[in-house]
Design a protein around this nucleic acid. Structure first.
Lengths: 188, 188
DNA sequence: TTTTAAATGTGAGATAAGTCACACTTTAAA
DNA sequence: TTTAAAGTGTGACTTATCTCACATTTAAAA
């Protein structure tokens, strides 16, 4: 069952009774998306945070030259949103779309805030997740500043071995901040 | 009074009574540091998160070539730590030291967790701060991936005008992920 | 299965940024 | 106030990476 994945992730941080988990799940809705479908489009509202239970997504920014820069991939057990748009109820600056058909549990910002208010365990859970995300982003910044393309690729390989054969190399290049030609020329 | 800065920042997010604020402040200690002094050294413990009330600090990573990469500056009203070391009670991978003599309110991770447990308003406050930090890091990643040195410098100027004349250009270069020579050659 | 589109590899040349070197200026220390 | 250290600017050369082009392979759609 798709909710069990969420439960497992939550319970790695805080224990919940069956009733508590049913209460939590009530704040989410199950969503299905097709390959290439947008979940979020720049300029539009981005009212949902998604916990992916199957499939694969990417969030990315399109710069003034029309170039895509991938900020995040999200497969099973990952969360994905445009955090700025979501938390501050602003129009999206990012796009999110499906690399594969995807099923996710989605929660609105209002529901999330209500849930955190009603259930402090969940506030604690989200706190832990956000902190871990913050740490991961700091590492990514250091990686962009201190490593060359090849080292960044190798680090990606090590960190997300599953994704290497599941995502086109040109998308990995975009995630790493390198052109697809340069990635293709690496001795890897 | 140095605590009032903290109160003001907290009250921009959650209102506190005088008693509540006194309770909160009890979890912090006032620390003074001299210019060039380390707050955190790579390899050692990093048991404190600092809320700066005066002065200026930097956190940075030293790569295998001995090159410094600045992750963050922190002046009045900013928080600074090695989040990975702090939250997970690990040895630091970052260094933090003073660009200017600094006064800060410091809190241990144990005190922070106890405070969040005792005072849900503070948990909410830290949640908001961490989320805002996460969003800022995402923007920095996109900036590193999509902008050239000059655009990054101009963006820094716009975002932190106060820091431009307070920090040596070579440190700004390190923060922007560019050599000091290249920064010096920009037509800015 | 056939057709079309997407992904990938690779050459050739352009370019942003890095590195090393040294002079000059500003700031801090003795 | 003198001395030393740190910060900054700039020339000359190197290099990683980008861009454009086109061929080839692989995957998806008709």
């Amino acid at each position: 069952m798709t909710e069990q994945l969420l439960r497992k992730q939550i319970e790695a941080i805080v224990k919940l009774t069956d009733e508590e988990f049913q209460f939590v799940v009530g704040y989410f809705e199950i969503k299905n998306y097709r390959k290439n479908q947008y979940l979020v489009q720049a300029g539009a509202a981005a009212p949902l945070d998604h916990f992916v239970t199957s499939g694969l997504l990417k969030s990315y920014f399109i710069d003034e030259d029309g170039k895509e820069h991938i900020l995040q991939f999200a497969m099973e057990d990952w969360w994905i949103s445009d955090p700025q748009a979501y938390h501050n109820r602003l129009p999206a600056t990012l796009n999110i779309d499906c690399i594969e058909d995807t099923t996710a549990l989605a929660i609105t910002i209002d529901n999330r805030e209500a849930l955190c208010y009603e259930c402090k365990k969940m506030e604690y859970f989200f706190m832990k997740k956000t902190t871990a995300g913050y740490i991961a982003l700091q590492k990514r910044i250091l990686s962009l500043m201190s490593q060359n393309s090849e080292d960044r690729y190798r680090q990606f390989e090590e960190l997300y071995p599953v994704l290497i054969n599941r995502i086109p190399k040109k998308l990995i290049a975009s995630y790493l901040g390198v052109s697809r030609e340069t990635l293709s020329r690496l001795s890897i």
